[in-house]
């Protein structure tokens, strides 16, 4: 009689997970309980060894998703970089209290695929940010985390930016100012694009420039903003 997942130690679980995965790929009947239990131990009990077994078991699957993504070839990164980020992201996103939402192995693997998709997007965003940063001659932005490289840095920078945007938007007086600052700096649109996109607010490009400078003047005169973020 075969063991159930609760009767096995970690090594046994890992072994049975591997066996059942092989059955799956041979299109034979398989039992997903062992792999699911490994996930539960890793994500609910934060068991590092279970996490390591899962990584070994599913690393090829995640690598396949990454390598088939059209952005992978031009990313300049190794598959392992994205694979590690995907597992890290799942580890951070599924806290013990969230695990109950995942009723079976398919749901967990589906979520791992979501994490994989999102790390590729994160990398593209980081590249976008570096292009914008390069346009500004002083590469070090005061008080900002370096978003290039690691998940933590990106998360910190996202938080800092959201906080700054909240401060800025509180100081804008009307819809036109809010629109022009949002479109110009948050969306990185050129003045002509802003005018075309928001024609009802800006009859001509000159109005875009004038409104934007009026908003920036107010931010420059704000001592709190100047103290936190320098000259605007």
């Amino acid at each position: 009689m075969s063991n159930t997942s609760s009767q096995l130690n970690l090594a046994g679980l890992s072994h049975r997970c591997a066996e059942e995965t092989e059955l799956f790929f041979r299109r034979a009947p398989y039992d997903p309980q062992f792999c699911y239990e490994l996930f539960r131990l890793a994500l609910v009990q934060r068991n590092q060894q279970a996490y390591a077994y899962l990584y070994t078991r599913y690393q090829p699957l995640v690598a396949g998703w990454i390598e088939r993504h059209p952005s992978f070839i031009t990313s300049g990164e190794e598959t392992t970089y994205f694979t590690n980020r995907a597992f890290e992201k799942m580890w951070q996103a599924i806290k013990p209290e969230k695990f109950a939402r995942f009723h079976d192995l398919k749901a967990l693997l589906g979520y791992l695929k979501l994490c994989t998709a999102s790390v590729i997007i994160d990398h593209a965003r980081s590249h976008q940010h570096s292009l914008v940063d390069e346009e500004y001659s002083e590469l070090t932005l005061e008080g900002y985390a370096d978003s290039r490289g690691d998940l933590e840095g990106q998360t910190v920078r996202q938080g800092q930016q959201a906080q700054l945007w909240q401060l800025v938007s509180q100081r804008l007086t009307d819809e036109r100012e809010r629109t022009v600052v949002y479109a110009s700096f948050v969306m990185a649109m050129k003045p002509a694009e802003v005018q075309q996109h928001y024609e009802h607010l800006f009859p001509d490009v000159k109005t875009v420039y004038r409104t934007k400078q009026a908003a920036l003047d107010r931010l420059r005169r704000d001592s709190n903003m100047a103290q936190l973020y320098g000259e605007w």
Binding site: V132, D133, S137, Y144, F185, V186
Partner: peptide
């Protein structure tokens, strides 16, 4: 003035965008 504008863009670019995983969860109906 142009440099200040570029700096403002560097500080605020995509400041209110949700994390990529949130978008993925949204796409998956989660």
């Amino acid at each position: 003035l142009k440099a200040l504008e570029q700096r403002a863009t560097a500080l605020l670019f995509r400041a209110d965008c949700p994390p990529a995983l949130d978008l993925a969860e949204y796409q998956a109906g989660l």
